[in-house]
């Protein structure tokens, strides 16, 4: 599934990374715990309710470039600047974590574990 299709499915808004919306996503991981995200060996789409600088930093360290932030939280300028510096795609949706995960799972996105 492409990030463009994911954006449509989630009625999402692309905050940064328009240029990379044709990239494919096959796996996802959902967590609000950044230390948990830092244990991943893979590079899935991250679904999170955490919307602060550490969300973006953690993605940078863990080499994740695709993030969906749920519940209509808006990343600030500083976060988006760092995300753009790292060629990341940041999508926001007003859907809840549960609904977001359910929709993506139903569309064939696979869990990591």
């Amino acid at each position: 599934m492409t990030l463009r299709e994911i954006t449509t499915l989630l009625h999402g808004h692309v905050c940064t990374g328009e240029a990379y919306l044709d990239e494919e996503v096959s796996t996802a991981f959902a967590s609000d715990l950044m230390s948990d995200v830092l244990t991943l060996n893979d590079t899935p789409l991250l679904i999170t309710g955490l919307c602060n600088m550490q969300t973006i930093r953690t993605c940078d360290m863990a080499c994740l470039s695709h993030v969906v932030i749920v519940r209509n939280k808006t990343p600030n300028e500083e976060m988006l600047e760092l995300a753009a510096d790292n060629d990341m795609v940041v999508i926001t949706t007003e859907f809840s974590m549960f609904r977001t995960c359910g929709l993506l799972f139903q569309s064939g996105i696979k869990p990591l574990y």
Partner: peptide
């Protein structure tokens, strides 16, 4: 609130 405090940091470093 910052997304930390799972008690996984030091074990992560070790790993």
């Amino acid at each position: 609130d910052m997304g930390f405090g799972a008690g996984m940091g030091l074990p992560n470093m070790q790993k």
